[in-house]
Design a protein around this nucleic acid. Structure first.
Length: 291
DNA sequence: TACCAGGGGTAAG
DNA sequence: CTTACCCATGGT
């Protein structure tokens, strides 16, 4: 079934480029193929703030939730401090970005893979993992290549450490191996994780081998929809130091606390949704739109 | 608190 | 041909 929906602040190309999902591809005919868990849909930008969605019957509500259609993004953009010209420009440039409601397990593995990797390479490795361990999906439209679901914990737990190393996961292989074993044996309880608030989820996630603060924040933001989460990677670090660092003010702040302090001082005022603004500045910087 | 190894791909020098 | 870097973490 194909339906057209009008949703403010929704741009599929911007979402794709925002680095939050790695299983979204634009076909030659302009339709985006979107995969999450074991579901697939096609979507096409039919106008500003308007998409055509082609999904299995009965899944419309799931996909509208996936695109976070109940969150008021125009209001978020409007709340930006008028004196923060950089943030205003970034939000204007990436105003079609929404925080997708993705799957926690898929985000755990995907963002462990993301460690010290470029976005194209993260896509490639994620696809390799799905192809090797995920269940095949019935092709939709005129697709020739078979599609694969993201492997469930029980499927990924069948992988040996040697197999994962063969997929060129490098030092991340041991993390993914251990996390798969933990999830399969329910030491990592995804149901409990999903019921936790942001601070609880951070504490829980960082307790597992291979999940540090940055990856835990990505899982919270993209997999659990805790939109107050504010992941700090090398891009965000560069922005914080260039746009917000004042030598006088932070002269006696230890290096490891400096970034936390900069986030708190400049984004703490956006209580409860700072992660949305993180996505705007990440996109703005990575796309080279600044200056 | 601060450094450093860990793989591998890619871009720049 | 090197070197630097990439949506980092764990161990020291």
């Amino acid at each position: 079934m194909i339906h057209t929906y009008t949703i403010p602040c929704l741009d599929l190309a911007q979402i794709d480029a925002s680095g939050q999902c790695f299983r979204m591809t634009c076909r030659k005919d302009g339709w985006w193929q979107i995969l999450t868990r074991d579901r697939q849909a096609l979507a096409r930008q039919s106008g500003p703030d308007q998409i055509c969605l082609d999904c299995p019957p009965g899944e419309e509500a799931f996909w509208l939730s996936y695109f976070d259609c109940d969150t008021d993004y125009p209001q978020i953009i409007q709340s930006i401090d008028p004196e923060d010209a950089y943030l205003r420009a970034a939000a204007h440039a990436g105003s079609g970005i929404r925080i997708l409601r993705q799957d926690p397990w898929e985000m755990i593995i995907t963002f462990v893979i993301s460690q010290q990797k470029t976005i194209p390479h993260i896509r490639q490795l994620t696809q390799a993992l799905c192809r090797r361990y995920g269940s095949p999906l019935k092709a939709k439209g005129s697709q020739e290549d078979p599609l694969f679901a993201f492997p469930r914990p029980d499927q990924l737990a069948a992988a040996s450490l040697e197999e994962l190393l063969d997929l060129k996961l490098g030092y991340r292989a041991k993390y993914i191996y251990q996390l798969s074993q933990d999830a399969y044996q329910e030491r990592l309880d995804l149901t409990v994780l999903s019921s936790m608030d942001y601070p609880e989820a951070m504490k829980y996630l960082t307790g597992f081998y291979g999940i540090g603060k940055k990856v835990a924040n990505c899982i919270c933001l993209f997999g659990l929809h805790h939109i107050q989460a504010f992941p700090v990677d090398t891009w965000i670090e560069k922005i914080l130091m260039r746009q917000y660092y004042q030598p006088k003010k932070y002269r006696r702040t230890p290096k490891t606390r400096l970034l936390d302090q900069l986030v708190q001082d400049n984004f703490g005022k956006y209580d409860g949704y700072a992660g949305v603004l993180q996505q705007y500045i990440f996109y703005y910087e990575r796309m080279g739109l600044f200056k």
